[in-house]
């Protein structure tokens, strides 16, 4: 065997450490991508983030990889999830450039999902409740939990815990936001306010646009829940991810005073979603561009392209996810059968 063939066979040679099996090439990618992930965080003015956040970002990638492995039993998909999340541009923008902590929220969510996958519902409830308390930007996930409760995947007491945590966070946050006198209704997050106009109405005790936006979000989510109630719950893993992605995005799209860091969790979730359904690649790709455009506007004070364009793209992604969910749950079929004009129950 010559050197070439020896090296080629080495690339695909299987190694075993305890219960862990891996090819040399897999180990090589894991090591190299970890190094690259560190290096990609070094060129910026303040260098890499504090080591605790570095560990959190690394652990997030690892946890997401474990989640994908449990869902697909595919080692390569899991490894690619780990690799993509380590060098995800929004991850670098949030942790390294902005010095933000959205990775903690994403980590909490992935951990919650792992507990859900294990069937440990109370631990899921606990992690999700902490997440809801952590930031109001995750409020939409509460609606996804409501669907799980409707379909008896969560117990009433578990859902009530989540409702209390989410409700408390929303109440506290918006009590402060609405009276803060902000001049904008969105902070570099390309949502509906980038289309209808992001300037707040000044000279009022409370900005009416933001107040309407808040109730509009609540109304739309309840309407969506009512629609989802008609359908049947699917057991596929991608369905669950899609459900959380849709409700998370929907809430952040209509809630006022959201910021660029909203996109972080959804970008992570979209990568997991892509690994479960590779044909859905436009979802993570477009979300990544949209979210990064928000970060870029935050850093630079101006956007290369109109933010309304990114908002429109995000709306299309969200609408696509919503329609797919309704199709899968059989709601659209049901509506077609019961033609609206003749629907009498």
């Amino acid at each position: 065997m010559n050197v070439d063939d020896m090296l080629r066979s080495l690339l695909f040679r299987r190694f075993r450490i305890g219960r862990l099996q891996f090819d040399f090439l897999e180990a090589l990618l894991a090591v190299c991508i970890t190094g690259t992930a560190y290096l990609i965080r070094t060129p910026f003015e303040y260098g890499p983030p504090h080591w605790t956040y570095l560990i959190a970002e690394w652990y997030l990638a690892l946890a997401a990889a474990v989640l994908v492995f449990r869902y697909t039993a595919g080692r390569k998909r899991a490894l690619l999830t780990y690799a993509v999340l380590l060098i995800l541009p929004t991850g670098v923008a949030e942790g390294t450039i902005l010095r933000g902590n959205a990775c903690v929220g994403a980590l909490l969510f992935i951990c919650a999902f792992l507990f859900l996958e294990d069937g440990r519902r109370w631990l899921f409830t606990l992690a999700a409740a902490v997440l809801l308390l952590w930031s109001v930007r995750y409020a939409g996930l509460l609606a996804a939990c409501a669907v799980l409760w409707q379909k008896e995947e969560l117990k009433t007491e578990q859902f009530l815990c989540l409702l209390t945590a989410g409700g408390a966070r929303i109440a506290v946050a918006y009590r402060a936001y609405l009276q803060a006198g902000y001049t904008l209704t969105t902070f570099h997050w390309p949502n509906i306010y980038e289309i209808v106009g992001r300037e707040s109405i000044q000279g009022q005790l409370i900005d009416p646009i933001a107040l309407v936006g808040l109730f509009l979000t609540a109304g739309l989510l309840v309407l969506a829940l009512w629609l989802f109630r008609m359908g049947t719950m699917r057991r596929e893993r991608a369905f669950l991810i899609r459900l959380f992605l849709f409700f998370g995005l929907a809430a952040a799209y209509f809630l006022p005073y959201m910021d660029q860091s909203c996109g972080y969790l959804f970008c992570v979730l979209a990568v997991v979603y892509f690994m479960l359904e590779p044909k859905e690649f436009p979802v993570p790709m477009l979300l990544q561009i949209v979210a990064y455009a928000g970060y870029q506007e935050c850093f630079n004070g101006e956007s290369m392209m109109p933010m309304a364009l990114f908002a429109a793209i995000q709306f299309l992604v969200m609408a696509y996810l919503g329609v797919r969910l309704l199709q899968e749950m059989g709601v659209i079929r049901l509506w077609k059968e019961k033609s609206l004009s003749t629907w009498t129950d």
Binding site: L29, T36, L39, I40, P43, F44, L86
Partner: peptide
């Protein structure tokens, strides 16, 4: 630097 490391990572994958 960041762009070069990014494309390096993408190419690796």
């Amino acid at each position: 630097g960041a762009g070069m490391y990014l494309i390096l990572g993408i190419l690796m994958m």
